[in-house]
Structures are given as structure tokens and as C-alpha cells.
Design a protein around this nucleic acid. Structure first.
Length: 809
DNA sequence: AGCCCTCGAGTTCT
DNA sequence: CTCGAGGGCT
């Protein structure tokens, strides 16, 4: 596609320019990428090169000119030839009905009127003026009469054509539309802003506005903005069409993007169903919309209808119920989670956001509070996007932060508010008292008064109380009982709270001492439910080891890591006593996870709980022996490099060298002997052994390694002999999607894992195969786009049968 | 050193 | 479901 060698630079530049503009138009205007990005980039760079050599050949419509211009001091004012008006609003169905009625009465038509219905994009309205087909000026709406000249910024937006796609463009054309930032663009931008230590944007609208108001257009050039045209305000040099929809077609033909959701709809019912439909798909559109705009399609009718003061009588905006609401931050409570992590929760004046009443919102951590600049009593905006989780978006700047009248009186009289001298309630919450406006980190755990330590760069605060902490006790028990852990039916959050409050249980081990009569008296618990609970507890005594490990709630150990541990070691006792270095040999366990496991088993109270569980008759089901594959990885070389990862001082001794040493000596004893004798015949660089000797002396690493080696030797003796068992899917990652008819997702997963495959939730280039059930969605699309092998349920069942797995219906 | 993929953890309301 | 970060690969 690139121009040939023997053409002149001028020709090649023109060819490249046209080609790039065409691609760009297909990509941004028609949403039909016709070339890979790499090819676009290559052509783009070639054009840059040529233009650098021939500056005289650079034209204003060259794609290279979209990168911005030197910063301005301020924007010029622009007076709109035709004012940019606002729209009347309809807030419910009745108001839309009224609108349609008024239109038909004024026009005196009996039948349904055709309207252009379009999503109301939530961005920034701009006006683009084209003179003889070239973009001459771009302006913001401003107050409708006067806006700002943002031409240099708008020129950097790729979907805005700098030159109309026409041999015979109108002499003068003013197109109006909306500049928006798509959701993925915002996510990308915020990530980048964060990395650069710059402020992030709360929503796409702010981001779009902020980007367009940059005085330095090279910044705008790097912002993912899109433009959609929605009307024509001026047209000189050719005749107007009869309808608005035809006008939009023409705009499209000129190469300017018109939103693909814009449709003509006849009459009220069709208007309403358009609204319903787009509201349901709103999240999937990829950009924010805040309603629907309806415009009478026939232009002569528009003229006939005219205006009322500042709004056209022929158009109306039907807005969605607001998804952002303003309310008051009443208090911030610190919640203590299962792992001891302290999470601030905003207690809000209840407010309806997108159909549900929200009174709580997580503030995640103290950084978020500082970033938002929150104080108790502030007005805040709460947002609920496509997701369900409410979020405090921003503090509403208040004129002042004077204390409320009641408090001012108190302060004048210098009467200190009464502090109730009472121990904190045994719940996981403790409020920040209302007169404390500043939100600060608690110095001690609000529940158990233990010390708090900062983790992960100071963002996470963690209570050190462990099982001493009432909150962690409760949460640990709830986790233990949960469906994915021990699956104790009937032991829900409420019941756990009640049992702890009554002093009946403190740890999970106490659960198994419960008698039916203990429980029966409790709230909402009859004899029948009590008996059921005891039965459920009994049933939970027989659980796979992996679930049991997960249920213990060890930091960093989720379902997957628990499975890996159970599979590798084969029984609980081997895991409990294993030295740190052994954990590091388990797949997907690194230094952090290994330390967390070792720390858990080093705690005496954890040991007690485990012993209590075993004594009560809980018998984690396991295959009893370490897996062959795991034992095979317990090599001297691996121990040495793991020790280095954990901090054994071995500077100057690379991984390769450690591997060589490990392979040569095979057993730690042999290596230690060589170190002791100062004789080395492994062929590594001279001096390496001395460094190794140094490292072994430091911090008891010699002992650590010896413990690991001895443990490995013991495990090896227990492991089944011979090669790893039959695992045909070893190393493969599969993905399940859609609904399977003949087996559940969990069953399918277990079958696959039995064959050695990993089952993952998302498709990537590393996915070996996707099993697609009924109504498979985006994962299937992704699989197709990545060219990943896809089979349906029938093929999958056949595949299982080939590997000796039969389904019993 | 940097990127990609998973996994863990925390969360709201009906 | 989403965010963050651990782990492993290049």
C-alpha cells in the first residue's frame, strides 16, 4: 500500500496522507478498522520522515498535524452565529407524552410524527465550522451565545475530519456534536495519570472537559477523545434536505461520525421503546449517556414549531433517572475484615441512586479519603455506574466548613462534648464521633485495641490482634462456614454473630462442641434448625484438604493456592511442619505467600485451633502422599535460588551458577562438604564457593537449607514411585463459558482438573481451549478473535468420554 | 526491568 | 465485579 520508490516525494506524501486519512476515517468514523495498527503506524512514521525532509509539503490536513501546537495563554472568545440552545427536559413518561401531544397539536397532524431519536451523550458540546470543506474553527458551547475557540485542541481529535470527504463541499458548514471520552479510554488515561503521579478523573465527562480545555494542545492530543455529530446549524452553498435524518446522512457522507444509535422513530410508543432499549444497553455502549433526545425529523415542521425563549419546541431531552446523587457524609466507620484489614466505610444520608437506596459506601483506604479531601458532614456525590457498588465520587466544595450552629454554640461555651466512657461494642464497627470532622486513622484496632501496622506502602492498615480480635474472630468463622470453604449449611452471618455474642464460640474449633440445645434457644432458631445445624457441622468434618486449608483463612491463601498446597504436600501434617523454603517450591507460591503460610503455622493459637479441629473429628480428606511432580521439584538448585529470593546474601552469584552447583552436587550434604573442604570440581567460577560459604554463615541460612533438604528427603520417601500419573492436559489452561446442560460448571472444572488442566475465568492467548455452552458471551468472542480452539458441550462430553470420564445423568 | 495473567480480598442490596 | 498486587515470563 506504500507508494513506490520511483514516485516523487510530493506524490508519496499525498498518497500516504490520503491513505492514512482514509484508514483513520474507517476506524473512527465507520468503526471498521481496515488495517492493523502496526501498518497504520508504519505509514504514519514514513509520512513523518518525508515531511521532515520536505517541510514545504506539509499541509494542514496531514494526519501528522494532529499532535498539537504550542501552548496558548488563553482561549479566544467566539460568538456563535447561531446560538447554541439548551433543550427542554422530560423527566417521566407523562412529560414525554405531553411533548408529543403539543407537537401534534401545533402542527395539526393526527397520525404519529416521525422523530429522530438519539442517545444524549454525556460529554462536551462543540461547534465545528467548515469553510470550503476545511475545518476553520471549533468552539465550545459556553453560555450559548459566546464560547471559546478550541480549534487547536479539536484538531487533535482523530475522529474530527480536518477536511470534509467531498469533491464539492459546501462553502460554509457548521456542524454541532458532542466530544466524549469512552470508558476504556478513561480507564487507560487514569492508569497513566496515576503512574505519572497526576490527578485522575472522576468521570468521563470531567475528563473530556479537562482535556479540551488544555491550553497545551499536545496534551489534548494524547487524550482518547471521540466526536459525534448531532446537528447542522449552518449550511451555505447547497440546499438543505427535507429532514434532519437526511442531513445527518449527509454529515456522515462528509466523513464526520454520527452515532450509530441514532434512529428515526414514529410516534410515542416507538419513542418510548427506543428509550427503554437504550437504557438497558447503556452500560455496554462504551461511553456515558444521560438520556435520549428526540427531534422532529421534518425540517419544515421544525421551522413551523419555532422556539420558546431559549429552547426549541421541536426537541426534547428525556433524561435517565440520575445515577449520581448528592447526599451527606454522616460518619466514617472503620470496619475490620477477616484478615484484620481496616476499611473505612462512609455512612451516608440514605439516597436513591439508580433505583436502590444507598446508605453505605466503601472508601477503600485512607488514601482515598485524603484524595477526596473528605471530612464528616461534607456534601458528597455518590455514583453507581454499570456496577452495583456505590462509590463516593467527590466532595462538593462548600462555601465554608463552619461547624453547624449546634456545635458553634458548644464551642463558644467551651463545653466539651461528652464522651461516653464505654468500651467499644463487640461489633466490627466503631463510629467516628460526629463532632470529629477530621477523619483520621485509628491508632489502635477499634474492636480489640490491638496495635495497627501499616502494610503495602502504608495504604493498608491491619489489626495485629488476630484471633484475639472480636471482628477477626467473627469474620474468620463466617469464612470457615462459607459455601466455598467448609460449606456449613445454616451457619450464616447472623447466627455466627449471635453465637459469638452469647460467648458460645470463640474459634472455629468451638463450633464442633456445640450442642443442639445450646443453639435452640437463640433468636430465630427452633429445635429443627438447631438439629439441622448440628447435622451440617457433622457433614463438614469430611472435606477435601484443599477446602480445609482455604477455610483456615490463611492470609494470601485462596482457593487456588490451597489446592496447590494440598496437591503438593498430600496431607495436613506435612504442610504444618514444612520449612519456609519448601512452600516456595509450590507452583504459584512466591516469597510473600510462602512467608504468610509459615507465619500462620508459627502462631501458637493457630496451632491450637487446628489441633482442636482435628480432636473434634474433622478429618481433611487427602491422598496422603506428596505428589510426584512436587517432589521432583525439590532440588538443591531450586532451594538455592529460593533462598536467594528470600534474602540469603549471595550477591554476585547468579541463578545460572546456582543451578550449575545444584545440578552438580545434587544433595546439600555434598555441597556443604565441598564448601568445607574448599574444593570445588563443579566448574563454576573460582571464588563462588567462598561467596556461598559467606552466605551460608549469615542469618542461619545453613540451617534453613538443611531443614529444607531433610524435609525434602523425607517427602521423597513418601511420594509414589515412578513418573507422574496420567495427566494428558498437563500445562494447559481451559476456559468454560456459557451454560452447560448436562453438567455444572463446577463438575466440568473438576473433570478438567483431574486430567491436569487449569481452568481459568478469562480467555487469553495462552488459553488452550474454550468450552462454549448455551448463550456464551464475550469470552467466546474473545476466543474467536484470538483464534483459540473452541468446542461445544457435545464435543466436550465426547472428549471427556475419550479420557475415561463418563457422566451419570 | 517491565509486562501479562491470575489470584486474593473486599463490597452493596434485595 | 473490580482493584491491586504477587508471580512468572521475556
Amino acid at each position: 500500500m506504500t507508494a513506490k520508490k520511483d514516485t516523487s516525494p510530493a506524490e508519496e506524501i499525498r498518497a500516504l496522507r490520503d491513505q492514512l486519512n482514509d484508514w483513520s476515517h474507517r476506524y473512527y468514523g465507520l468503526d471498521d478498522p481496515s488495517v492493523p495498527d502496526a501498518e497504520y503506524d508504519r505509514a504514519f512514521r514514513r509520512l513523518e520522515e518525508l515531511e521532515a525532509e520536505h517541510p514545504d509539503l506539509v499541509t494542514a490536513d496531514s494526519p501528522t498535524q494532529r499532535v498539537g501546537e504550542p501552548p496558548l495563554d488563553a482561549f479566544d472568545e467566539v460568538r456563535h452565529d447561531v446560538p447554541m440552545l439548551s433543550l427542554g427536559n422530560a423527566f417521566d413518561e407523562q412529560e414525554l407524552r405531553d411533548f408529543d401531544q403539543r407537537v401534534r397539536e401545533r402542527l395539526d397532524v393526527g397520525g404519529p410524527v416521525a422523530y429522530v431519536a438519539e442517545p444524549k451523550l454525556d460529554g462536551l458540546a462543540v461547534s465545528l465550522l467548515y469553510e470550503n470543506g476545511e475545518l476553520a474553527r471549533a468552539a465550545t458551547r459556553g453560555d450559548g451565545e459566546t464560547g471559546e475557540d478550541i480549534t487547536i485542541n479539536v484538531r487533535t481529535i482523530k475522529s474530527v475530519r480536518l477536511k470534509l470527504l467531498s469533491d464539492n463541499p459546501p462553502a460554509r458548514l457548521e456542524v454541532r456534536g458532542e466530544v466524549v471520552m469512552p470508558h476504556d479510554g478513561l480507564a487507560w488515561l487514569n492508569k497513566r495519570q496515576e503512574k505519572a503521579g497526576q490527578k485522575t478523573f472522576a468521570n468521563p465527562r470531567n475528563a473530556a472537559a479537562g482535556s479540551l480545555r488544555q491550553l497545551d494542545s499536545s496534551i489534548t492530543a494524547q487524550r482518547p477523545l471521540e466526536f459525534y455529530a448531532y446537528s447542522v446549524a449552518q449550511l451555505d452553498g447547497e440546499d438543505w434536505p427535507d429532514t434532519h435524518s437526511e442531513m445527518l446522512e449527509r454529515v456522515r457522507d462528509w466523513g464526520l461520525p454520527v452515532n450509530e444509535e441514532v434512529k428515526v422513530r414514529d410516534g410515542l410508543d416507538a419513542m418510548l421503546s427506543f428509550y427503554q432499549d437504550i437504557m438497558e444497553r447503556r452500560i455496554d455502549l462504551g461511553y456515558d449517556i444521560d438520556g435520549v433526545v428526540y427531534k422532529v425529523d421534518r425540517l419544515d415542521w421544525q421551522e413551523e414549531l419555532g422556539f420558546v425563549s431559549r429552547a426549541p419546541r421541536w426537541a426534547v431531552a428525556y433524561k435517565f433517572p440520575a445515577q449520581e446523587q448528592r447526599t451527606t457524609l454522616k460518619a466514617v466507620e472503620w470496619q475490620v475484615g477477616r484478615t484484620g484489614a481496616l476499611t473505612p466505610v462512609a455512612k451516608l444520608e440514605p439516597v436513591e441512586v439508580g433505583g436502590v437506596v444507598v446508605s453505605n459506601a466503601s472508601l477503600h483506604n485512607i488514601d482515598e479519603i485524603r484524595r477526596l479531601g473528605l471530612e464528616v458532614g461534607d456534601r458528597v456525590d455518590v455514583y453507581r455506574a454499570g456496577d452495583v457498588i456505590p462509590k463516593v465520587v467527590r466532595r462538593v466544595p462548600a462555601p465554608s466548613r463552619k461547624p453547624p450552629p449546634s456545635m458553634r454554640r458548644r464551642l463558644r461555651k467551651k463545653i466539651k462534648p461528652q464522651v461516653r466512657l464505654r468500651l467499644p461494642p463487640a461489633s466490627k464497627y466503631i463510629p467516628v464521633l460526629p463532632w470529629q470532622r477530621r477523619i483520621s486513622l485509628p491508632a489502635k484496632c477499634p474492636v480489640c485495641r490491638s496495635d495497627i501496622i501499616a502494610e503495602a506502602g502504608g495504604v493498608i492498615q491491619r489489626c495485629t490482634g488476630g484471633l484475639i480480635c472480636g471482628a477477626q474472630q467473627r469474620e474468620a468463622i463466617k469464612h470457615f462456614a462459607s459455601r466455598r470453604a467448609m460449606d456449613i449449611d445454616g451457619l450464616g452471618d447472623k447466627l455466627v454473630d449471635a453465637l459469638v455474642d452469647q460467648g458460645l464460640i470463640k474459634t472455629v474449633a468451638d463450633l464442633y462442641d456445640l450442642q443442639a440445645e445450646d443453639v435452640a434457644g437463640l433468636e430465630r432458631m427452633g429445635e429443627k434448625s438447631a438439629a439441622n445445624l448440628i447435622e451440617a457441622l457433622e457433614a463438614s468434618k469430611d472435606m477435601p484438604l484443599s477446602r480445609f486449608l482455604f477455610a483456615l483463612g490463611i492470609l494470601q491463601i485462596g482457593e487456588e493456592t490451597a489446592k496447590a498446597l494440598a496437591e503438593a504436600f498430600g496431607d495436613l501434617e506435612s504442610i504444618r511442619r514444612a520449612p519456609l523454603l519448601l512452600f516456595l517450591q509450590v507452583p504459584d507460591v512466591g516469597s510473600e505467600v510462602a512467608k504468610a503460610i509459615a507465619a500462620f503455622f508459627a502462631e501458637e493459637h493457630n496451632e491450637k485451633v487446628i489441633d482442636g479441629l482435628l480432636a473434634a473429628g474433622v478429618t481433611p480428606r487427602s491422598n496422603g502422599a506428596p505428589s510426584r511432580r512436587f517432589v521432583d521439584t525439590l532440588t538443591l538448585a531450586n532451594f538455592l535460588s529460593s533462598a536467594k529470593i528470600l534474602g540469603m546474601p549471595l550477591s554476585g552469584v547468579g541463578t545460572k551458577t546456582l543451578e550449575t552447583l545444584g545440578r552438580h552436587y545434587r544433595h546439600l550434604d555434598a555441597l556443604l562438604k565441598a564448601v568445607g573442604d574448599g574444593e570445588d570440581d563443579s566448574g563454576v567460577k573460582a571464588g563462588t564457593l567462598e561467596k556461598l560459604a559467606e552466605g551460608l554463615k549469615a542469618d542461619g541460612w545453613r540451617t534453613e537449607l538443611q531443614k529444607a533438604q531433610a524435609y525434602a528427603d523425607a517427602l521423597a520417601a513418601k511420594a509414589p514411585a515412578g513418573a507422574a500419573d496420567e495427566r494428558p492436559l498437563e500445562g494447559q489452561t481451559w476456559v468454560l463459558t456459557g451454560t452447560l446442560a448436562r453438567l455444572t460448571r463446577d463438575q466440568a472444572k473438576q473433570h478438567l482438573e483431574a486430567l491436569g488442566a487449569k481452568v481459568s475465568g478469562s480467555v487469553s492467548s495462552k488459553t488452550a481451549r474454550v468450552v462454549a455452552g448455551e448463550s456464551a458471551g464475550s469470552k467466546l468472542d474473545k476466543a474467536r478473535s484470538l483464534d483459540v480452539d473452541v468446542i461445544d458441550e457435545e464435543e466436550f462430553i465426547g472428549f471427556l468420554a475419550e479420557h475415561g470420564i463418563k457422566l451419570d445423568d
